[in-house]
Structure formats: structure tokens, C-alpha cells
Computed example of a mutant assay.
Amino acid sequence: MKQITATGNTVETAIQSALEQLQTSEDQVDAEIIDEGKKGFLGFGTKPAIVKVSIKKNPVQDAETFIYEVAEQMGAPVQVNTEIHQREIYMDLEGEKIAMLIGKRGQTLNSLQYLAQLVVNRESDIFYTVMLDAEGYRGRRKETLENLAQRLAEKAIRTNQEVKLEPMPSYERKIIHTALQDHKKVNTDSDGNDPRRHVVIRPS
């Protein structure tokens, strides 16, 4: 975190000095008064005010920087479009080699999402959820999982045996559960421990 200690005749002038050195505005910083200073009398006993000014943590900027750097190192530079809805950060990646960042069944994208969430929350007082997408991949994956859920539900009914799906992150398991929650002939559960936690479809 970038910070600076500055002095001035008053607290206000000390803060202003720090802002100029940091090249930022007051709404972007946290200021801590170390010493309020002392005016003195006829120039004697004067003591400067001392403040410590720190640039506020910007979780979104940190996450974007992390994604840019990792993508660059992978040889797949990207553009990041970010939206924030309360405590949820949605980041959509665009690039010529986007498939490298998605990986097999979204595994690379899921790993990047997990790491980006760690970066965002490591020094934040507020917990943010990060959702990483890549040129609409999540929507296509959701449709694939919903179709898979229906096919495997029919298999469970036909064979009268439970069907275990491959391990998935929690939000993908939720897609399966939601797709079959109103199904009258099967029930779903999650079994196992992360990262091997998976959905089980059982005939009712």
C-alpha cells in the first residue's frame, strides 16, 4: 500500500502536501494524524503538524492487475471489463487466446477466479465474491451443465441407480441442483470434500 508521512504548518496543509506527493485526491486516501503541531508564540516553540497518508485499498484494481499479469505471463494478454454489484465483482475477459485462460472444462478460469478472490480479500475489511467469465463461457457452461443434469437424471431413473458427476466448484454444483430441484423422480446431494466434492443424482 502506497503511503507517505508529511509535515505542514497545520494538519490541513500537511495532508495537502501528502496528496500532492501521492498525486491523488482526499477521497482516495486515509489520513492518520501523528502530531497536530503547535503554533508557538512569536515564532518560538512552533511545532509542525505531522500526518501519515495512505492510498485506500482498491480491491477491483488489485484483481484486474493480477489478471493482467497472469495472462501476460501465459502469453494470452486480455482486456478486462469489470462491474461491481454491492459485494460481487464480475470480470469478463476478452482476448485472442482466451481458450488458454479457460482451460479444459473451465479449470484454468476457475483457478484464476479463486486466486483473484484471494487477492481482492487479502487486505479488505469487506468480503467480496469474484466471478470471472471469458467471452460468455459461463453462460455456455451453464447450458451444458443443465443439459447434462437432465441426461443423467434420465440415466438414474432408467438404471434405478445413483449417478455421480465429476467434481465441480460450488456454483457449478448449484446449477445441477437447481436444474433438478423440481424433478419428481430424482433427488440430488453433494458428496465428498473440496476439491473432489461432487453431485450425486439418486432415483426417488
Score class of each variant (00 low, 15 high):
Q3E: 15
N9M: 05
N9F: 01
V11C: 00
I15E: 07
I15P: 06
S17M: 05
A18E: 09
Q21P: 03
Q21C: 12
E26D: 12
E26L: 07
D27E: 15
D27F: 03
Q28A: 14
D30Q: 13
D30W: 08
A31M: 09
A31P: 01
I34L: 11
K38L: 07
K39D: 08
K39W: 04
F41E: 00
G43F: 01
G45C: 00
V53N: 02
I55F: 06
N58A: 08
P59H: 09
V60Y: 07
A63V: 15
E64K: 13
T65I: 08
F66N: 11
V70T: 15
A71K: 00
A76E: 08
N81D: 12
N81R: 10
T82A: 08
I84S: 08
R87C: 03
R87N: 15
I89A: 11
Y90L: 10
E94K: 03
E94M: 05
E94D: 10
E96N: 05
A99N: 11
M100D: 12
L101V: 04
L101W: 00
K104Y: 01
Q107P: 06
L109F: 05
L109W: 07
N110T: 14
N110W: 11
Q113W: 08
A116T: 14
A116C: 13
L118K: 07
L118H: 09
V120N: 01
R122K: 15
S124I: 05
S124P: 02
D133M: 13
E135V: 02
E135Q: 07
Y137N: 03
R141E: 08
R141D: 00
K142T: 15
T144E: 05
L145T: 12
E146P: 04
L148N: 02
L148F: 01
R151F: 01
A153W: 02
A153P: 03
K155S: 12
R158K: 15
R158L: 10
N160S: 14
V163I: 15
V163G: 03
K164Q: 15
L165E: 12
L165T: 10
E166C: 07
E166I: 04
M168I: 06
M168V: 08
S170Q: 02
S170C: 02
Q181R: 13
Q181C: 07
V186L: 11
V186M: 12
T188I: 09
D189G: 06
D191V: 14
G192N: 06
D194T: 10
R196Y: 10
R196H: 03
V199K: 03
I201R: 11
S204T: 14
S204A: 15
